[in-house]
Write a protein that binds this DNA or RNA. Structure first.
Lengths: 329, 329
DNA sequence: TCCAGAAACTTGAACGATCCAATCCTGCCT
DNA sequence: AGGCAGGATTGGATCGTTCAAGTTTCTGGA
């Protein structure tokens, strides 16, 4: 069994001191070219890798980023997180960071987990997916100067922290305009109850696009919790009352419900969902697509900016979604 | 700013030595009840948490488990990994371990990542999802005595390592029997090309169930790569040639394609998929459901067994799937 | 040739926990 | 009262790295 290769092993092999090896790794510019080469050769020859625990103990930095993985709720929108996490892992890796998972069933437990992760693992930063009004989590982290980024903008506009988000209103507006261009006028909207930032934003995009086209949106929208059954119920309600020729939904779950409700209706009602989930692709549902990989990459960018460099709060990033066209609209 | 709470702080507060505090944490039974209580009170009062880096440096154990997160491929089956990872994180957490994510585009890179993770982070173990014939990854890990578990049995039966799997054959057999019980006789199967362990296993379950019922499976199966379009194509082929009254599929993707192919066919053809993905739930597809949370939990069980205790190779675990009944069968 | 000053490199100490070996109690028995 | 056994407690060393401070080597100008 080969003995452990430490910085001392490399130093001996390259006939320099430990510190010089450390300098080659962390501040190469202060080491003479010739010496640096000798050390690098030794590192390669021995297959040396810096021990993260020892480094962390001295520097207090773990090069670990925490991200939460949720229980798959209704499942349809779950894959959004899945794709985001993959992007996050990939980009973080390239930046020399690793992603650590955690779960929590509610905000209190999540905050308790923060304390635990910070205390025992000395995590460098957190990535929060999803934000809401008066989010206690961001407040807690900000109070303790823990670096974090949210995927989802802060709806309070109280404290400014780094965030990345996708412009949901632009997405629904784009969807609505496409329906308008196709000749639709009675374009309904099925969304979430007023009060959720994301939901209100998506509804606003639809409403403003209609108004801009001179169409009165009054009475054309319905609100409910997310879910297929809920979407189906509200679509039936819409068909019975205002008889829209098209509908934009705040999620693919709702859109899927709407699709079931309009089965057999003639002329066919156009439906557009939101999130471009695998389900949408599977059933041919036109849907607003979020650039999740890009969003994850920008999250890492913001974090590394805070962690490795400038102390000023970086500029938030608002990404534009696109429309994945399929045969329902 | 409160200063850092170390084991020395706790010791001072409880009027004992550092070692006693360490004993309370690691070998509570050798400390007198009264003293233990005093130390525990101090720990709570100060909010002390053992620094993982320092512990790791001395013990060489990181209490970190690595799991791979794949790019979502066709997306439909992606949520399987999602749900597994969530279960893994939850159970690992309860056992005092954390899950670290990594990605890799091919086996060679994945193995290179193993070396990196082991060298710099001293990972305790790996969880591999999916196995294939002659998997180079398990070989590499086994050669180096790195603890690992696979979710998916070793198809070679060469080297025995701990694994957890779901009995795919039992799942398709159960699906097939349900169709037989409903009166079907011409029950087809759409699966993956011969040579993948998982695919062959699922086909075998269907075949054996048919034979057990005295039905000749010859000519009733088709093979293709996974995908909705592929499933649709092969279902059309089946309808044109053997005209089955029901079909069992190796995945929900294939089943979804089959569903599209039979639209309008009368009498309706029954379809059963595999994996019970969100898509299946959404479109009402009956599907074989894997106990993913349970599988993840058993993976953690096996790992902790290897890590914290006995040196003997633990017994593999084969879990039974169930049938999620919906309206397509 | 000599010296100042910079550059390059080396040495000792520290991070916070655990392990080891030595010491200190405490209760019990004679 | 003294001695002893056994468990409880203590100090010191250690893991591998980086920081801070010290020492040597190099460079160039008078």
């Amino acid at each position: 069994m080969a003995e452990k290769v430490t910085i001392a092993t490399v130093a001996r092999h390259a006939r320099v001191s430990r510190q010089t090896v450390s300098n080659v790794l962390n501040s190469p510019h202060i080491v003479r070219q010739e010496t640096r080469q000798r050390v690098e050769d030794a590192i390669n020859a021995l297959g040396y890798r810096a021990n993260q625990a020892a480094r962390q103990m001295r520097t207090g930095r773990s090069r670990l980023i925490a991200a939460r993985i949720d229980p798959t709720r209704d499942g349809i929108n779950g894959s959004v997180l899945d794709r985001f996490l993959h992007g996050l892992t990939e980009t973080a890796d390239a930046a020399g960071y690793r992603v650590l998972l955690y779960t929590a069933t509610d905000d209190d437990r999540e905050i308790a987990t923060y304390g635990d992760l910070l205390g025992t693992y000395e995590l460098d930063a957190f990535v929060l997916v999803g934000t809401k009004y008066g989010d206690p989590r961001t407040e807690w982290l900000a109070d303790r100067d823990v670096p974090f980024v949210t995927f989802g903008r802060p709806w309070d506009a109280l404290d400014a922290h780094p965030w990345v988000d996708v412009d949901g209103a632009a997405g629904t507006a784009q969807a609505t305009r496409r329906l308008l261009d196709a000749g639709h006028r009675r374009i309904a909207f099925i969304g979430w109850p007023v009060g959720s930032g994301v939901g209100d934003d998506r509804r606003a995009g639809w409403r403003d696009a209609l108004r801009a086209a001179g169409v009165d949106p009054t009475g054309l929208h319905r609100e409910t919790e997310d879910g297929i059954a809920e979407g189906e119920r509200l679509m039936h309600d819409l068909l019975d009352t205002v008889a829209p020729s098209a509908v934009v939904c705040a999620s693919d779950s709702l859109a899927l419900g709407a699709l079931q409700a309009i089965r057999g209706v003639d002329p066919p009602v156009s439906v557009i969902g939101f999130d471009d989930t695998p389900v949408a692709a599977a059933v041919g549902l036109t849907s607003v697509s979020q650039p999740l990989g890009e969003a994850a990459a920008r999250c890492v960018d913001l974090l590394t900016g805070v962690l490795d460099g400038d102390h000023e709060t970086p500029t938030p990033v608002l990404l534009q979604p696109s429309l994945a066209l399929r045969h329902t609209a």
